[in-house]
């Protein structure tokens, strides 16, 4: 019999901002938002709680916890990686929804954004014509960062 898995969250190098149950984790150029379910699972990952323990404490089923851990692991938010089952492939969101009868709001969701470059031009910041794509510019200029630039 396989020994129980005690997941441990990666907590170093983040700015952590709680948001009424949701959690924002900022790591350099990448920021992730964990919804309430994903956030509560991540917070329980202290290396001392097994999947069964977390499920019991959060009043969720083990499948939901396993799915949440797979999501957290995929986003590099766990120090320890959950062992894979026989088919060695993490459940997709669709498979998870098919298998479990869970309310949509309780599905563990992690949203990721890449933060903007601070040097993007201010509206109208171009010395010449502004543009969205190169055809907006008068040839032979090309569109770079919203500005028509001569080449």
């Amino acid at each position: 019999m396989a020994s129980p898995f005690y997941p441990q969250a990666r907590r170093e190098g983040f700015i952590v901002q709680p948001m009424d149950g949701e959690l924002i984790l900022q790591d350099g150029e990448v920021t992730r938002l964990l919804n309430e379910t994903a956030a509560s699972v991540w917070q329980k990952c202290d290396g001392h709680h097994s999947i069964a323990d977390i499920a019991r404490e959060l009043a969720l089923d083990e499948m939901t916890i396993t799915y949440a851990l797979a999501q957290l692991s995929q986003k590099h938010l766990l120090q320890t990686i959950p062992s894979r089952t026989a088919d060695a492939r993490p459940m997709t969101r669709r498979e998870f929804l098919k298998k479990g009868a869970i309310a949509a709001a309780a599905i563990p969701v992690i949203k990721t954004i890449h933060l903007p470059d601070p040097n993007v031009p201010v509206s109208g910041a171009c010395p010449g014509q502004s543009c969205v794509v190169t055809p907006d510019c008068t040839p032979p200029d090309v569109c770079i960062s919203g500005c028509c630039v001569g080449v």
Binding site: D20, E22, I24, E29, L33, I113, L115, P116, P118
Partner: peptide
């Protein structure tokens, strides 16, 4: 949107988002 999603939308448009300032 939830406050978390709202904060993310604001952050995606923040000039000093990458600065890491709390």
């Amino acid at each position: 949107l939830t406050p978390g999603l709202g904060a993310l939308e604001l952050l995606a448009n923040t000039v000093t988002a990458r600065s890491g300032q709390p």
